[in-house]
Amino acid sequence: MSDELLKVTDLHAGIEGKEILRGINLTIRPGEVHAIMGPNGSGKSTLSGVLAGDPRFTVTSGQAVFHGVDLLSLSPEDRSHEGLFLSFQYPVEIPGVTMVNFMRAAVNAKRKYLNEPPLSANEFLKMMRQKRAIVELDNKLASRSVNEGFSGGEKKRNEIFQMAVLEPRLSILDETDSGLDIDALRIVAGGVNKLRTGQNATIVITHYQRLLDYIKPDVVHILYKGRIVYTGGPELALELEEKGYDWIKEQVDNN
């Protein structure tokens, strides 16, 4: 179907021989925001890692088709070029590599993939300036090493800034709200909302409803024990906030 951006079918995956995802089915269309919620250890971060190609995880069976492309056969960088973006729960610090060099390498690698000429230094710096404004990122961060010495809020804003630069078709925000105070949360969510169009889509992975006050989901999924056990509208998130996860656990565990 042409209007499917991502279609995940019966995806099984694990780490070091231990199965964590036990048959995920998920369909995402352009313009949609999906929230994936679930208790700790349900497999949320595994799902984002597997989709982005984190080598720690092994896919044992299943499919993920990303706008017609077999996602699971691609290298992590080609998934990125195809328009998949993962905002890391724990952005990695890379001492000695400046943000400018890092982003230029990323942008030009993608342009090369798309058979476009590399950006000149001027064009690139201009773009960096524009995108920085979206998440109110300090100019000074550009000359610092990637994520090194960044505060928790700066790290998450830096993730959204990179998302703005790379203009993905599908963004996965993995626990982007963790460790953020309310102001940082508003800025980060504001950035995400500014980047929304009718063509791209977002998966918000979160433990709490809080972030969903700022990024309104169209669909809410509940992940538990490696399966999506419940799918509903935005009201499901509110229900979870009120009643916790226990009723879901009971329902699933008793069946």
């Binding site: 190609g53 984190d54 960088e77 990125s80 890391f88 890092f102 990323a106 690698a109």
Partner: peptide, 10 residues
């Protein structure tokens, strides 16, 4: 992996 996920080839 972080760099690759940003599209930088290995």
């Amino acid at each position: 992996f972080y760099m690759q996920s940003r599209g930088i080839p290995a």
